[in-house]
Design a binder for these strands. Structure first.
Lengths: 113, 113
DNA sequence: TCATTAAGTATACTTTAGGATACAGGTATC
DNA sequence: GATACCTGTATCCTAAAGTATACTTAATGA
């Protein structure tokens, strides 16, 4: 295997890993919702059109396992849960920004083709 | 709906569109392979570990429909097909670069947690 | 005539993602 | 005791993504 091939396979792995962590229809969207000030389960559900509670529940676990959000139990009257972004999660901005920009441009490109 | 909410929904849509076009396990990887000099179907299959020809075939069609690659029939003896990136496709670099970087860093983060 | 090569297609699967709906469990209020 | 609030879970289902393996078509040259 040439050096170029080795580098190519490393790139593949890194990109597929990123896709595993933040890929799919909802993950970045959920992060943005929390970033926008929604901390509680039902607020997040309400803020994202068409998401269901089952999907949100699963995705929140995935994001927590990957150190992107943290879950705090607040022991008041009906027990509240607060989701917050970790410091580390802010690095997602390096991806979300470009993705938003690219998506907007692509819509124009395709609709006017 | 507040202005902030409208902007949020636009962001969601743009990101979900991007995910639709370049999301999944293979699409960016295929683009990188062509970028690396592989033009022919079997070369691309060979360059990407674990991809199958059926999957590659489907993904190439998707990428062509989204104006990211072009398919040229070369009418020689066993008919050859050449895939090349479109000019427009180069804009993917704005996404692939950050994704590669983020993925590499994330691997470190998770393995050392 | 037979094998070879390139670029896929066909068929039949398995796995993962996502969706619809119902409701549980604890606590506080009426 | 009944009811409502909150954060989910349970169950069941559909659709999309991905996999495995064999086959097709057309031309060519041994």
């Amino acid at each position: 295997m040439t050096e170029q091939e080795i580098k190519f396979k490393e790139k593949i792995k890194a990109i597929q890993d990123t896709m595993y962590v933040i890929g799919g229809k909802w993950k970045i969207v959920i992060i943005l919702s929390i970033y926008n000030g929604n901390k509680r389960f039902n607020d997040i559900v309400a803020s994202i059109p068409k998401i269901t509670n089952r999907v949100l529940s699963k995705e929140l676990k995935h994001l927590e396992e990957n150190l992107l959000i943290s879950r705090k139990v607040i022991d008041e009257y009906p027990v509240r849960i607060e989701y917050t972004l970790t410091e580390y999660c802010l690095s997602i901005d390096e991806l979300a920004g470009p993705m938003e920009k690219w998506g907007k441009n692509h819509m124009k490109k395709i609709s006017g083709k």
